[in-house]
Design a protein around this nucleic acid. Structure first.
Lengths: 236, 236
DNA sequence: ACCTCACTACGTACGCTGTACGTAACTAAC
DNA sequence: GTTAGTTACGTACAGCGTACGTAGTGAGGT
């Protein structure tokens, strides 16, 4: 046959182990764990192909046998941390609302452990094995909700999206500061000083009032729960 | 005086024009427009410092007089497209719900015009002049809502976050395919073939049922409106 | 048992990135 | 007129993703 044209591939469609030749020295789980370790420690930009290969103890280009493109490395990483969900999230039989709450809280915890997650998730395929397992579990938990599957998928998407947005807002400053040479306090101080200056100029009266009133009462966990509850209310 | 240590800076805190020396050849608006033009045409990764400088017609390092760090270029870009909001979004006096709906639709339109927007927004400071103008307008529109400012800020954040999530899900595949050498049809075909194979394996019965049922009725615009309406319901 | 060939391993190299640094020209302020 | 800060920009460096070529390995087919 004539040579096939290069084809787009989802890494999950490739078998992890080929039939012929020497057995691979590393598993996808090994590679994902190494990359996650690096990204957790030094940020997502530090998880380069060279660095991950070094962490594994192999040459840079050897990694390309396992991970054809950089994007696939991200895919592996997201799948790995998606495996951190403990399913079911709450006590069985407590209803879809409690279960989705519990899962949302887990998502937040996972993102706190891996702050680089939101940044790379928006680019990816999103149907890795652990993502499918998670999705399947959610749909199962929503069996008690009388709605078409389309609505259930919407609900799941909205919960995940809202949690992500919430966490991004919650930790944007800390994450940004961590990758910079100066300290977090300096960073926040300068940024807040600018904001305060703008608002003090009188051009933004509503915003000024909002800032003087301060944040809504309750600690961060309560705020998060309230947000998620409100969202679930809209589907009940 | 002893030399000051390098300080973190928000680009908006720098005066656009310095008191001394020759007058700058380009404005921030010029630079932002050039970068947006490039990103719209060839994707966000094409908006490199070299490429933007070339588009402007100056040397690469000259750009660093205006934009001290790459991140600040993104800040300029987000501010520029934030200026595309037409405020107010709907007819005056139609109430906060209608106004937030109109603004949400505008956000969606802006993100459709600039698909790179979600990817860079999660990293940024977020209080550019046009962002402040937008926020101030939202708070004004919400004057009729009887709630503390904290809740109003929550509402604005949730609306923006949800719209972003929705648009990302809506266009992720198209955007991803655009940056790859093969066509979008091929891309989607291979990805869907994999997913179908997984589901056909029988390991995901709920997901299989969801896929056979197909998407919820209604076109994309109606789906979007329904999502946003649901969210606003939860605050009413 | 042997041949064959897919697969693993990995060094080299290319074009790209952000940006530190040095130098020269310019001009507003003193 | 002098001075000092700004603009302009070429050079250079470290790091990136990855195409390509080569050598070695070991399971499958005969």
């Amino acid at each position: 046959m004539a040579g096939r044209a290069a084809e787009p591939e989802v890494i999950w469609a490739r078998p992890e182990r080929a039939g012929r030749g020497p057995k691979p020295a590393y598993s996808r789980a090994d590679i994902a764990a190494a990359a996650v370790r690096i990204a957790d420690a030094d940020g997502i930009d530090a998880a380069s192909m060279r660095r991950v290969a070094a962490e594994l103890g192999c040459g840079t280009m050897s990694l390309y046998n396992y991970v054809p493109r950089k994007e696939d490395l991200y895919e592996l990483m997201v799948d790995a941390v998606s495996g951190e969900y403990e399913l079911p999230g709450g006590p069985p039989g407590s209803g879809w609302r409690a279960e989705m709450m519990a899962l949302g809280r887990q998502t937040r915890e996972i993102m706190r452990r891996h702050p680089w997650l939101p940044r790379i998730m928006s680019t990816l395929y999103g149907f890795s094995p652990n993502a499918l397992r998670y999705l399947e579990h959610c749909l199962g938990a929503l069996e008690g909700l009388d709605a078409p599957y389309g609505t259930k998928m919407e609900l799941i998407g909205m919960v995940n999206g809202s949690v992500m947005t919430y966490v991004v807002n919650e930790f944007a400053m800390a994450e940004r500061a961590r990758s910079l040479p100066w300290s977090e306090e300096q960073e926040q101080q300068v940024r807040f000083a600018y904001l305060a200056g703008q608002v003090a100029g009188g051009a933004y009266p509503q915003l000024a009032a909002a800032l003087t009133e301060g944040p809504a009462p309750g600690n961060a966990d309560e705020l998060f729960d309230r947000m998620l509850n409100r969202l679930l209310d809209s589907f009940a």
